[in-house]
């Protein structure tokens, strides 16, 4: 699953990537499922995967790169060990998500899109998690959390930065 970090991603490996691509190669419109599988395995889509996919799906490398870069989900480099996605949709805005985004930035030095220097935590924005009656909402390592306040965020940041 792209949004979760439940299992630690493996380091990039071309043979594994090729078998992931081959496993899906016959499906009609296999591109997105393949990219999701690659990201689930490695935590990102390595540039070296592009020619493998292009070859298998009989499309140009430019086309594969175009798809990878079009969708917000696909990363071209690994994220931090933990990922915190904070919802910035209107329903969460109505219950104060802007202040929470500012709190992460001001109190923890984590602007949206930033990763801590030690690689422990990446903070990203997301638009709507479908939890609009119980906002503000975040997704922490794939887990949906509702009615989030600054204290919840402090706890998540502390948890993410605990020594391994």
């Amino acid at each position: 699953m792209s949004e979760g970090q439940a299992s630690r991603p493996a380091p990039w490996d071309e043979a594994t990537a090729a078998s992931i691509v081959a496993a899906r190669g016959q499906e009609p419109g296999a591109m997105l499922p393949i990219l999701h599988d690659l990201q689930a395995a490695f935590g990102y889509v390595d540039a070296a995967a592009v020619p493998i996919i292009a070859d298998r799906l009989n499309v140009s490398r430019a086309e594969v790169h175009g798809v990878v870069s079009f969708y917000h989900d696909f990363r071209d480099h690994p994220a931090g060990r933990h990922v915190l996605k904070i919802c910035r949709g209107e329903a969460c805005q109505a219950v104060g998500c802007r202040a929470l985004v500012d709190h992460l930035d001001i109190c923890h030095g984590l602007a949206t899109g930033a990763t801590t220097a030690d690689g422990d935590l990446t903070v990203e924005e997301i638009f709507c998690l479908g939890n609009c009656a119980l906002g503000p909402s975040v997704l922490y390592d794939g887990e949906l959390i509702g009615r989030v306040d600054a204290k919840t965020l402090d706890g998540l940041v502390a948890e993410a930065r605990e020594p391994r």
Binding site: S2, P28, G29, A30, M31, L32, P33, L35, H36, L57, V59, E63, G66, V67, F70, Y71, H72, D73, F74, I126, F127
Partner: peptide
């Protein structure tokens, strides 16, 4: 099928492109 974080793919023709494996 799982989308990939693109609001525009809720537009029906964009969704078809996405299902076909394109931008």
């Amino acid at each position: 099928r799982l989308g990939a974080g693109a609001y525009i793919c809720g537009e029906e023709t964009s969704m078809l492109e996405s299902l076909e494996g394109k931008r």
